[in-house]
Write a protein that binds this DNA or RNA. Structure first.
Lengths: 347, 347
DNA sequence: TGAATAATTCAAAGCGCTTTGAATGTTTTA
DNA sequence: TAAAACATTCAAAGCGCTTTGAATTATTCA
């Protein structure tokens, strides 16, 4: 048997009832200060922490939040922003002693996973990741009465819900305008999967900027796909197989931008010189370069920060279940790097 | 109140005792087949799943495994392989209905986190990540009597423990020999942080290959640091500031290799032509390119696979606590890409 | 057919906490 | 100084399951 102290032992040691010891340690006011200190000292001395299984059953709360990470079955692709997001969220959970339950499922099993968590009452809340347009998981979560926050939004969903999102439309609008101001008229867009809400909003910002500047939208220059390095690479090649290749490319992620760079290198095109690149940047920790002029001009928003704020909103809404749903919109920063220059026709 | 069915309700509906219903659903043999089917049907019909809080308390097991992700305080760096590893481990947990508890802590708080998990008896087991040389977390986990598996090994630790690791020494030995066979005699090594066990083993394989081929080891060409893209970039620049820059570079990760590529591009050096690059590759999903000749020659080992096997070993050792500890050594594949060519002096 | 055996089912205890409602001890008030 | 008011502590119930040990029912054997 393991050498653990339980409440019973501790209360015997102290010559107090379990009730009093429990209250002393949980900060209830009706315990005398003398007793409280005595209890706290003994708890430390005997390395007592309440058994979380028992605590959860007795208190009716699990102090656990679930994050559900989906991997598409074919690609087994893991979203690379996930670990940074989680790391931000964790920071918030640690502050309030929540545990984080991470569940990885195939797309098609995701609904069942939510149902399952609710039926087992295994968690106090859920973070919904990577919402699509008209995402019916939101309706489901409303039915399940499980508190949740969406990381992102879902166009087309009429119900209200808690969300934290980057202003994707505005980020890509500004990015596109920035390129237009530099004289670019032919701008490619290498975006995420078509039914992802963020991808739709980004495309929409891009389109709006072109329209407002009376530039024709060439649908062939818009790519949708899973945001891998090879995808960026291949899409760039396709762009340059066209009769009139773009003079600038917008990318939806740093990983894509890596692929773009590899393709351009092979094509002997200099980034910034021959072609401008502007990428969205989630500010992932292992790409972060400090103190220097960054290679890529980008619209940047820390996904770790988003994780923290998402966790915070969820904890708030668990604490206060009746409160109005709210949305938090983060603005991306336009950061000028070396990858964008005034348009010059390739000689 | 939420519309959940509990065991009591279900047993009343069925006109059976809670005991019988519980046993029927948990597959005990002393329940008649007729009763079992009736119970299963009713459970489905009324959407019954046992409350996990209660189940855990009653059964004494949490059916939860903890993974502790550390972020260095200064850099707030998240290990990019983490999400792929987790995704592999999750697949195994799903098979046996384990939950995955993810905890993110600063390096210095990690010990306390383990103690905490043990004292609260919050998990049935732990996966230890990123072991260093002489890692004292192993001793601690042995004391805590908490089942665990190390992802990696720890040189210098004499106690026995369960581990799953890539054969880093052999991978880098082969990689180095491969470059030597191509005629390279000056080979740089851009490695991980110096006290990480994997980095030590990799450096050791590299050294052995040079020694065996009677090539002088130039310590100035060995770099240790956190494996980010900018680190790869900067280290490459340093290599080329030397009087006698290397003709080949070994890299410890794909992310580093990205940085190397960026530096070489700026230097107008062609990968494969002017300089050979060989990188370790964790086969992260978002770098995976299928069907083509890969850019990078690499020693490759899927970290997702390692995650699956680690989880499997942990589950086995929880099931059978008395069993001998075991180590699982994965061999990396040497995959030839475009980034390595026979040595030619730069003209 | 009645005892012995096997197959099912059940009532109740227990997991280790929190929380309710009652009891005791202490101080204040008149 | 007794009653009222307040402060502190306690015994016991309850959270929703699993599991023990006993009870009931069905089957087999002589």
């Amino acid at each position: 048997m393991k050498n653990t102290t339980d409440l019973k032992k501790l209360s015997i040691i102290l010559g107090l009832s379990q009730t009093t010891v429990s209250r002393a340690l949980n900060g209830f006011p009706e315990v005398s200060e003398k007793t409280r200190i005595r209890a706290q000292l003994a708890a430390k001395k005997y390395n007592y922490l309440p058994n979380s299984r028992a605590k959860r059953l007795a208190s009716g709360r699990t102090m656990t939040i679930a994050h559900i990470m989906t991997t598409s079955k074919e690609h087994e692709l893991v979203n690379p922003i996930f670990s940074d997001f989680i790391s931000g969220a964790s920071r918030r959970y640690n502050e309030s002693n929540y545990d984080l339950l991470l569940s990885t499922v195939n797309d098609e099993d995701e609904h069942e996973t939510y149902r399952d968590l609710a039926a087992r009452s295994a968690v106090d809340g859920v973070v919904l990741h990577a919402p699509k347009i008209n995402d019916n998981r939101i309706t489901m979560l409303n039915e399940l009465q499980l508190p949740y926050v969406v990381h992102g939004r879902s166009s087309g969903v009429k119900e209200s819900y808690n969300w934290v999102d980057v202003n994707n439309e505005s980020a890509f609008f500004r990015a596109t305008e920035f390129l237009i101001d530099l004289g670019h008229k032919s701008i490619g867009l290498i975006n995420g999967v078509a039914d992802m809400d963020f991808a739709i909003r980004r495309a929409s910002g891009y389109r709006r900027a072109l329209s407002e500047n009376i530039i024709n939208i060439d649908e062939a220059k818009i790519f949708n796909g899973e945001m891998t390095e090879p995808y960026g690479y291949k899409s760039t090649f396709k762009l340059f197989e066209m009769e009139n290749p773009p003079s600038a490319i917008l990318s939806s992620s740093r990983i894509i931008a890596m692929g773009i760079r590899r393709a351009l290198e092979e094509k002997n095109l200099k980034i910034g010189q021959d072609i401008s690149i502007l990428t969205f940047d989630d500010d992932l920790s292992y790409f972060r370069e400090d103190g220097e002029i960054p290679l890529f001009t980008s619209t940047k928003s820390s996904v770790r920060e988003a994780g923290y704020k998402t966790a915070n909103l969820l904890i708030e809404s668990i604490k206060n279940p009746t409160q109005e749903t709210q949305g938090i919109l983060l603005e991306a920063e336009l950061t000028i790097g070396l990858s964008t220059k005034r348009f010059r026709p390739i000689s």
